[in-house]
Each structure stands twice: as structure tokens, then as C-alpha cells.
Design a protein around this nucleic acid. Structure first.
Lengths: 91, 91
DNA sequence: CTTATATTTAGATGAATATCTAAATGAAAA
DNA sequence: TTTTCATTTAGATATTCATCTAAATATAAG
């Protein structure tokens, strides 16, 4: 993992939209897919990228796979950013 | 511009390293280039991407072009992130 | 005015990636 | 135990993107 994978992951607009959807709470892959015109496999790919980046977690419940945000990794991005804004010498 | 360009820009490790260099203060394109094994044109390309994303600003002084961080856009990323972390319902 | 220096622009190339269709997996329902 | 449903995996394709060399631009120095 690492910050590289994370930042690459949020660099795609579809993936950010997925993250936005998950702000409201966990959703199945199918529910997520309904919000896009892209095919199932495409969404599945994006979910895999987000999962590998640690931005989301998945849990299989019977026939469905539920996805939800993993806040931990957002903190990592946050600290990368604040290394710039927080350490601003003109602050 | 917009968040898309910004997040795409910080998704590249060379560009993040450039941003890190500029934390110490403004530098010329040449000074920045010295820190990398990549060629001048490659660094110039990365600088252009960062500039188009609004992450850095350039100022021409005679023969040199100085680059420096533009904090404003970092704030924009920050607010995108905190829309997730700040709004955490388990907080 | 000619040469040297700093940087960018143009154009080409190879690697990474987003997307699709078709097939595979796995679990529930009939 | 077939069939159906949810999702992923495999493999192909097209686009995006990082990088390079060569050439252009612009300024300073001789």
C-alpha cells in the first residue's frame, strides 16, 4: 500500500464518486453500480483499486458484497496535506 | 482547473517530490531538475502539470523561472478530505 | 552580433490504465 | 440439483500519460 496507491486511487472521478456514495453508509457492489452508466466489471475494477488502496473495506454477506469507507487511510492523506498547509512559514 | 486536475497532479511521485522540494522555498526549474535523474523536458512537463493544477506558481526573473508552492489549492484538497474525515459519523 | 545558458515545445514511444465482452465463481432460490 | 442472481476474473482494446531526443525560444554574456 502507501500514499502512492492512495493518491492514484482518488485521482479518478468515478472512484471519487464511489467514495461519495459510501459517505451515506455501506452499499453493495450492485447498488454502487446502479449509479453509473459503466458496466459491472468496470465498477468491480474501481472497487478493487479502492480496496487495494485501503480506502474501502468489503464484507461478504451471503450473495452480496458490502463496501464501506475506511477512514484510517483518509487520515494518512490528511497528514500528507497538512505537511504543506500546516507547515506554511507565512502562516 | 478543479479538484480532478489537482488530485491527478499529486498522484505522480516525481511531482510530489517536486512539491516537497518547494516546501523549503522557491527554486528555479534547473535547481529542481538537479534533484532528479529525469531529463529537463520531463521535469518541465511535470512543472507544467503542477502549474495547470494551480499547485505551484512561476515567476520569470531574467534567464531563470522560479517556482513556488501555491497554498490556496492545498486548502481545496484539504476540504475535500475533511468532507470524509470531518463528517465521520463514528467520530 | 554571436555564443552560451535556461527552459519549454514538438513529436515519438512505451507503459499504465479505464473500459468492454465473455467466462468463471459462489451463494441463494426454485 | 438445476437455475438464477451478484460479483469477479480474464483477456482485448483504446486512451492517457511519463519519458525521451531534437528543435525552438528567450535572455544574458562575450
Amino acid at each position: 500500500m502507501g500514499i502512492q496507491q492512495t493518491l492514484k486511487a482518488i485521482g479518478d472521478p468515478t472512484r471519487r464518486e464511489i467514495l461519495d456514495l459510501l459517505k451515506a453508509g455501506e452499499k453493495t457492489a450492485g447498488e454502487i453500480g446502479e449509479h453509473f452508466k459503466a458496466t459491472g466489471p468496470t465498477i468491480s475494477h474501481h472497487l478493487a483499486v479502492l480496496r487495494n488502496a485501503g480506502l474501502i473495506m468489503d464484507e461478504k454477506k451471503g450473495k452480496y458484497i458490502f463496501y464501506e469507507l475506511n477512514m484510517t487511510v483518509f487520515e494518512e492523506i490528511l497528514s500528507w496535506i497538512t505537511a504543506f498547509t500546516g507547515g506554511d512559514k507565512d502562516e
